[in-house]
Nucleic acid binder design. Structure first.
Length: 221
DNA sequence: TAGGCCATCTGGTCCT
DNA sequence: AGGACCAGATGGCCTA
């Protein structure tokens, strides 16, 4: 819950320059593929080179092949490592973007300045309940729109907002929470699936009535 | 010291 | 092939 003192940069750097020597060591000690049999290529008996020369050039060629093989493996490993580093970088950026979005969300949620920064899960719960509270407020105001004076509407709006904000909006079981509840935070799919089609229609009509209200209300103001 | 929160790495999967 | 997304693992920091 407390703000982090360590900057993400120092963290990034620490992780970015992690020691990969182990991997390299393994790669370098990888068993080379078996060398081709000596008889398949090379000198045949009776050529102009003496036997010793023939053997020498053969082993030279084998050495060269092995060397190029190791070279290939090293480049493959380097390539893999490169890709990993790139992927890590992208992943880090992605998470930073996600955190920025969360910060943006935090900034529009009503909290006291001296409040500790909301954690990620608290932010999501708060936002969920806050939206619910706002739409409920709008809906109630919508109902009383036709038998209220302008001042009455404003008073009612203020009262409802205050009431809902007094509740602990970060709590999963807050009284402002809907029946579908916030347990579904952990399984996003379950939230929509928990509503029957008629419930979904109901929700849709609620939201449209809220929208209607905002239009009407802005006219009054 | 245990537990919560967080950032990062990593390998897998899906998509373009 | 390469990028985006995801979930599990890991390790650091902080607080009760």
């Amino acid at each position: 819950m407390s703000p982090k003192t360590e900057s993400s940069h120092s963290r990034s750097e620490r992780y970015l320059y992690y020691d990969v020597s182990d991997e390299e060591d393994h790669s370098l000690s990888l068993p080379c593929s078996p060398a081709p049999s000596a008889g398949s290529e090379g000198c045949s008996v009776g050529e102009k080179f003496p036997l010793s020369d023939c053997r020498e050039s053969q082993s030279k060629r084998q050495k060269g092949r092995r060397r190029s093989q190791v070279k290939n493996e090293v480049t493959v490993i380097k390539q893999k490592k490169n890709r990993r580093i790139k992927a890590n970088d992208r992943e880090r950026n992605r998470m930073h973007n996600l955190n920025s979005a969360l910060d943006a969300l935090r900034s529009v949620l009503p909290t006291f300045p001296d409040d500790a920064k909301l954690t990620k899960i608290e932010t999501l719960r708060f936002a969920h309940n806050y939206i619910w509270a706002l739409s409920e407020t709008l809906q109630m105001a919508d109902h009383s729109l036709f038998n209220m004076t302008q001042q009455g509407i404003a008073d009612s709006f203020e009262k409802l907002s205050k009431t809902c904000l007094m509740v602990d909006l970060t709590s999963p079981n807050s009284s402002c929470s809907s029946s579908s509840d916030w347990d579904s935070l952990y399984s996003p799919g379950s939230q929509s699936s928990s509503h029957s089609p008629t419930e979904m229609d109901d929700l849709r009509s609620k939201s449209t009535s809220s929208l209607k209200y905002t239009d009407t209300f802005s006219e009054f103001i």
